[in-house]
């Protein structure tokens, strides 16, 4: 048990961070190089002003017609995405680990808040799962990999919640928690989770084309 713990909380953390940050960097650079070679117009028409204008509308809840038309989805997806990033960064238990390892720390949320937000994330994942199964158009687009990805995202939250509450087997769960978090980090650059990296560019490009060239809104 100690060996496993030491391994997942030691070298594997480094590996996952390296894959995560290195992967993001690699994806961005390789995509930029490819675009320079094959899609030079992306550079020609990308506009900071109009790109940001579009991004801004899309990252504000109900900032676009689409968000307004699907209020439940909008609320769920926004809280989900905010929590997804917010919880791991501001969780007390994580901060103390960073403090121990690298002597860095910052503001944290209360454990009660973390509990509630984690439930929100898990509930959101269930919402997404149900959507995939129930809505015909989403179901049509869904492949096994979509469930796997959803699982990858949900796993750290479910296992974290389990571990925190010290439910039976929480020791094993704790290790799975660390591992699943690492898997998620490593998966981000190389799966459809890479929408996290590419969102500013795809949205920004569309916003640039709509704004700077076509003088129209894209939200």
């Amino acid at each position: 048990m100690h060996d496993i713990y030491n391994f997942v909380s030691g070298p594997l953390v480094w590996v996952s961070f390296i894959i995560f940050f290195g992967g993001i960097l690699y994806r961005l650079i390789s995509m930029a190089v490819l675009a320079k070679k094959k899609d030079v117009i992306v550079y020609e028409y990308m506009s900071l002003q109009y790109g940001l204008r579009s991004i801004l509308h899309w990252i504000i809840p109900f900032g676009t017609v689409k968000w307004q038309k699907n209020p439940i989805f909008t609320i769920v997806t926004f809280t989900f995405h905010i929590c997804l990033i917010f919880i791991p960064i501001f969780l007390f238990a994580h901060i103390i680990l960073w403090k121990e390892s690298w002597d860095i720390s910052w503001w944290y949320i209360s454990d009660i808040a973390a509990d509630v937000l984690t439930i929100v994330v898990i509930a959101s994942c269930i919402f997404f799962l149900v959507r995939r199964i129930v809505l015909p158009d989403v179901k049509y687009l869904t492949s096994i990999s979509d469930y796997v990805i959803l699982g990858i995202v949900a796993a750290p939250f479910i296992t974290g919640f389990w571990t925190y509450h010290q439910w039976p087997g929480f020791r094993i769960m704790g290790i799975i928690h660390i591992l699943s978090g690492e898997i998620m980090l490593a998966a981000i650059p190389f799966t459809r989770l890479s929408h996290m990296i590419f969102f500013p560019f795809t949205r920004g490009y569309m916003g640039s084309e709509f704004g700077a060239v076509r003088h129209a809104k894209d939200w």
Binding site: K66, L135, V138, D146, R192, S194, H195, F198, T202
Partner: peptide, 12 residues
């Protein structure tokens, strides 16, 4: 490449 890999099959 980006469009295909970024699409999360959400149906929106």
């Amino acid at each position: 490449k980006t469009y295909v890999e970024t699409c999360v099959h959400c149906g929106l």
